[in-house]
């Protein structure tokens, strides 16, 4: 007892500071937390009748669709954003300066507008397919835009700037010197990018992908235009179609369970050791690598 009292009484000031800042943090987060708490409390009073229906006919499709979309967009937007960031940060080519900011522009277009334009232009009744039919007859085949692939591509095009922006900053802050050092240590330019620059940018890329994943989970407009059933469309349907706000809340609670997995994956991916392996080089290679350091900015 005495020991406990002593420990509690002599808590170092640092701990107190931490406690008060976490309290402040909680107060500031409260407005955002309240809706989440309301959603979670809905689980305490389940509406079994609607839920049984949803679990049998709606949820299986919705979970598979949401997972496919999440994975697809994370991969396509992640690869697109990272490669564009690498090209812009590491290479010099005509148009690079304006592409540097122009590649951010998709962020200013809502995903549903892009979806609407893509369907209007690329669907069967759109101008592209009408032209193809006029040229090659009705046998002309174009992959259907209103499909899982279509919605993944459109959302990726709308959301890749999150990864692009973060990865670009990462590559720029590393500078080319890191690559050059790696080259002096025996890596080719390609493998230096792959083994050194990319692993160092991983935490930023992972953060971008986590943001994209959350945006994808929350998207309602684009998936509605594609009529691609995800959690958001199921929530809307439960609320407006079945007049059950409660079932909508329950679905939202299940959707919330996806969020920690987004953040966890970003921690896992971003938190792994990113130290590149160093190998020694000898002979003429050494001279060649040293010369690289004096070379002007590489051109791709």
């Amino acid at each position: 007892m005495t020991v406990t009292a002593t420990v509690a009484g002599s808590a170092p000031p640092r701990t107190r500071r931490v406690a008060s800042s976490s309290l402040l943090c909680l107060v500031l987060c409260l407005p955002a937390l309240i809706p989440l708490l309301v959603i979670l409390t809905s689980l305490a009073t389940p509406e079994t009748e609607v839920w049984t229906h949803l679990a049998r006919y709606v949820l299986p499709d919705v979970i598979v669709n949401t997972a496919k979309l999440l994975l697809g967009v994370a991969i396509v937007a992640g690869v697109l954003g990272t490669s564009l960031a690498w090209l812009i940060a590491m290479c010099e080519f005509p148009g690079r300066r304006w592409l540097d900011w122009a590649l951010l522009l998709p962020l200013s277009i809502p995903a549903y507008v892009l979806a609407f334009v893509a369907i209007g232009f690329l669907d069967y009744s759109g101008p592209l397919q009408a032209w193809l039919r006029a040229m090659f007859g009705s046998s002309a085949w174009v992959p259907p835009i209103r499909s899982t692939g279509g919605v993944i591509v459109v959302l990726s095009l709308a959301l890749y700037p999150y990864v692009y922006l973060l990865a670009r900053s990462a590559f720029l802050s590393q500078g080319r010197k890191v690559l050059e050092v790696a080259q002096t240590l025996g890596y080719s330019r390609g493998s230096a990018s792959w083994r050194v620059a990319l692993p160092m940018a991983k935490p930023w890329i992972a953060a971008g992908v986590a943001l994209i994943s959350m945006e994808t989970l929350a998207d309602f407009g684009a998936v509605s235009i594609f009529n691609y059933n995800t959690f958001t469309t199921a929530i809307y349907r439960a609320w407006f179609g079945m007049f059950s706000v409660h079932a909508a809340l329950e679905l939202s609670a299940v959707l919330l369970l996806f969020l920690p997995s987004c953040c966890r994956s970003s921690n896992w991916y971003g938190g792994r050791s990113s130290a590149p392996r160093v190998t020694s080089i000898a002979g003429t290679g050494r001279l060649r690598r040293t010369a690289c350091c004096w070379r002007p900015r590489p051109r791709c």
């Binding site: 369907i119 397919q129 209103r146 509605s224 235009i225 009529n227």
Partner: peptide, 16 residues
């Protein structure tokens, strides 16, 4: 074809 998001797209599909 998969169902449409609105009536106008649907009618354009019939016309096409």
């Amino acid at each position: 074809t998969p169902v449409f998001a609105n009536d106008i797209l649907l009618m354009q599909a019939i016309a096409a």
